[in-house]
């Protein structure tokens, strides 16, 4: 007798499964899971905290907040950040002060762990939400974060 109940139960479970997929088939028009990526570029907005790449914001006077303390460089586990710095004489005080020449960021080595931004005492570097990072040449992924001719904002001390 279990032979026939096996058949009955078997068919029943198969039909239950088909009902689930069939239900989705009928409602397929309502919502698809997938996104049509290059088409939805305009509307696609990443979350604020999304870790795309590290950038250094500059204000309208071409000033950033990096003092060149190198804490990010030390915090980075992969050596993605290299800071080339110099000492310059600050005019008001006459003292020598550290100043960045180039803040080099190797995006190709970055694992997006966020330790550098966590370590930065002056919030000079932040996450950008850009995620389209593919390039044809690996060297293009090495970026200089401070803009040419930029200088540190007044009153930023580490």
């Amino acid at each position: 007798m279990s032979y026939f109940s096996d058949i009955y139960n078997g068919i029943k479970t198969l039909l239950t499964g088909m009902r689930v997929t069939g239900g989705y088939f009928l409602n397929a028009r309502k919502g698809t899971l997938t996104q049509q990526y290059p088409d939805n570029r305009e509307t696609l907005k990443m979350f604020d905290r999304f870790r795309g790449e590290v950038v250094m914001p500059h204000d309208e006077n071409n000033e950033h907040q990096c003092t060149g303390c190198q804490k990010c460089e030390i915090a980075c586990p992969n050596g993605s950040i290299e800071i080339i710095w110099d000492r310059a004489i600050v005019e008001e005080t006459g003292k020598k002060k550290k100043k960045i020449d180039q803040h080099i960021y190797h995006l190709s080595m970055c694992t997006m762990c966020g330790l550098c931004i966590e370590a930065c005492p002056t919030d000079a570097i932040v996450w950008a939400q850009n995620f389209e990072n593919s390039v044809y040449d690996r060297t293009q992924l090495t970026k200089v974060l401070n803009q040419p001719g930029s200088k540190v904002k007044d009153g930023i001390e580490d």
């Binding site: 139960n9 078997g10 479970t13 198969l14 239950t16 499964g17 009902r19 689930v20 997929t21």
Partner: peptide, 8 residues
Amino acid sequence: RLLTGNVI
């Protein structure tokens, strides 16, 4: 319904 119960 879809998988666990399925006889196969």
